[in-house]
Nucleic acid binder design. Structure first.
Lengths: 105, 105
DNA sequence: CCGAATCCAAAGCGATACTG
DNA sequence: CAGTATCGCTTTGGATTCGG
C-alpha cells in the first residue's frame, strides 16, 4: 500500500460521514444541545423523513460518533456525541468558515 | 432564513465538493504536484473513468477551486489549484488526522 | 492527449403508511 | 415516542465507444 493509498483511505473515513446528506447539520445540533431525541432531531432539521434520519443515526452510532441511551422507565432514548464525534465539530466549523469566506452566497 | 439554515447552507457548499467520490484524493494530488494534466490524474487515481474525472474537474472549475490552462501550441492543458482550492487543503488534512486518530484501520 | 456521448446498474432519498 | 416497511423516482457513477 502506497502512502497515497493510505491517505485516501483516511480521507474516506471522514467523508463517509460528512458527505452524507443531513449529517453535518445533525452534528451541529448536537454541538448546541448535548443530548437529543429522535423527534427533536426531526423537528430541528425539518424535512428529513424518519427513514433517512434512522439511517443516519445508525450510521453515526456504528461509526462511534454518537451513542444511544435507552431509558428503561420509558420509551424515550437519547443520543449524544462521543469524544470522537466532538472532535469532528472543529472540522465542520472550518468547512463553514471556508464556505462563507469564498462563497458568494 | 434562520441562523441554523444559513449554517446548513455553508456546510453544504463544502460538502458538495468534498463529498464527491474521488474529489478529496484529486485535491491531495494537486497539493504535491501543483500542476497536473488529465491523463496524469487518471494514472494517479487509478480506477477512475474519464467520464467521472471530467465531471469532477468541471465541477471543481465551476466552483473556482481549480483553473484550467489550455496550452495553445499543443492539445495539452493543465489544471492547478486556485487560492480557494488551496484553502481547502488544511481541512482535508484535518479530516485525515481525525480519521487516523480515531479509526482503527 | 483530452475529453464528450451513450447506455446501464446501483445507490440515495423522499412520501407515505404502519407497528411496538 | 421511536422507529420499520414498501414503493418508486432521481442521481450517481462505471463501461465503453467515439471525436477534435
Amino acid at each position: 500500500m502506497t502512502v497515497a493509498e493510505k491517505t485516501i483511505g483516511c480521507v474516506k473515513a471522514a467523508t463517509d460521514i460528512l458527505g452524507d446528506k443531513w449529517t453535518p447539520q445533525l452534528l451541529r445540533f448536537f454541538a448546541n444541545e448535548e443530548s437529543l431525541r429522535f423527534c427533536q432531531l426531526q423537528d430541528l432539521v425539518g424535512g428529513i423523513n424518519p427513514r433517512t434520519l434512522s439511517a443516519r443515526l445508525t450510521h453515526l452510532e456504528t461509526a462511534g460518533i454518537i451513542e444511544k441511551t435507552t431509558n428503561e422507565s420509558s420509551t424515550r432514548c437519547d443520543y449524544r456525541l462521543t469524544k470522537k464525534g466532538t472532535a469532528l465539530l472543529p472540522i465542520i466549523r472550518d468547512m463553514e468558515r471556508w464556505s462563507s469566506h469564498y462563497e458568494t452566497v
